[in-house]
């Protein structure tokens, strides 16, 4: 079953009275369990695409469907709930809440789902264990390295067991060694949990774990390579 479907999606921005087409009548379907790498130069429209799939932005034309649900039909509140339950975000600058500990940062999206504290804490600790941070759960972001912060952010994205994780250049602020570790981690999570990943990057070296590589240029998909079969079937608990 497809997790995400885009039909003729366009998005343009007005910059000084001149329209800039960020996405141009894009068609795309993402299947469950895929690890999709989205490549493209800076300004090619990667973030715009992720924002549209993440129900944070609205297309000027076409339709985005998550689990066959057309986003254009949803209210702001419904989109929030959709993000809360089905979508996980990983950002370039980690975007942790500075006053909260690693554990609390990971717990936070669960508290937005009104899951009781005790249960949320357990699940958050579990997720932090999965990303190899069991020993750092009580640290604040400023007591963690960049790689560790991004691991916390990954734990935060997977803790709600979403259907798709949207990662917008998550390694852009990390050195190459750490970047490789992070990508390995995401790949492992994809294999272990069957989570669907859409991973945007402007680097070339992220291919090892990818099941599919998309290349974006000037708002159009110019390449769509399926590298291997799906790495796993859905193993989501529940």
């Amino acid at each position: 079953m497809s997790v995400v479907k885009l039909q003729q999606v366009s998005r343009a921005f007005e910059v000084g009275n001149k329209p800039i087409v960020a996405l141009d009548k894009l068609d795309l379907t993402l299947e469950e369990g895929e690890f999709v790498v989205l490549r493209g130069a800076s300004g090619s429209g990667k973030s715009t695409l992720l924002n549209l799939i993440g129900a944070m932005d609205n297309p000027d034309g076409g339709e985005v469907l998550i689990h066959d649900q057309a986003l254009s039909t949803l209210s702001d509140k419904q989109k929030s709930q959709l993000r809360s339950h089905y979508i996980g975000f990983i950002f370039q600058s980690f975007n942790l809440i500075p006053v909260l500990t690693a554990l609390e940062n990971v717990q936070y999206p669960l508290s937005l789902q009104k899951i009781p504290d005790a249960q949320a804490k357990l699940r958050a600790a579990e997720a932090l264990d999965q990303v190899g941070l069991a020993d750092f759960i009580h640290r604040r972001p400023n007591q963690l390295s960049g790689g560790q912060m991004q691991r916390v952010a990954i734990a935060r994205a997977i803790v709600t067991k979403p259907d798709i994780i949207l990662a917008d250049e998550p390694t852009a602020n990390l050195d190459s060694e750490t970047s490789i570790q992070i990508m390995d981690l995401l790949g492992e999570l994809n294999v272990q949990t069957g989570l669907t990943f859409l991973f945007a990057t402007h680097h070339d070296f992220v291919l090892s774990r990818a099941s599919r590589v998309l290349e974006l240029k000037d708002g159009k998909i110019i390449k769509d390579d399926k590298l291997r079969g799906l790495t796993s079937v859905k193993t989501k608990a529940g």
Binding site: M56, K77, S80, R83, N95, I97, L112
Partner: peptide, 16 residues
């Protein structure tokens, strides 16, 4: 501002 964006991305409603 960025924190508000992040929390919203995680699914917080306007009311929250």
């Amino acid at each position: 501002t960025p924190e508000i964006g992040t929390i919203r991305a995680m699914g917080a409603t306007r009311f929250e």
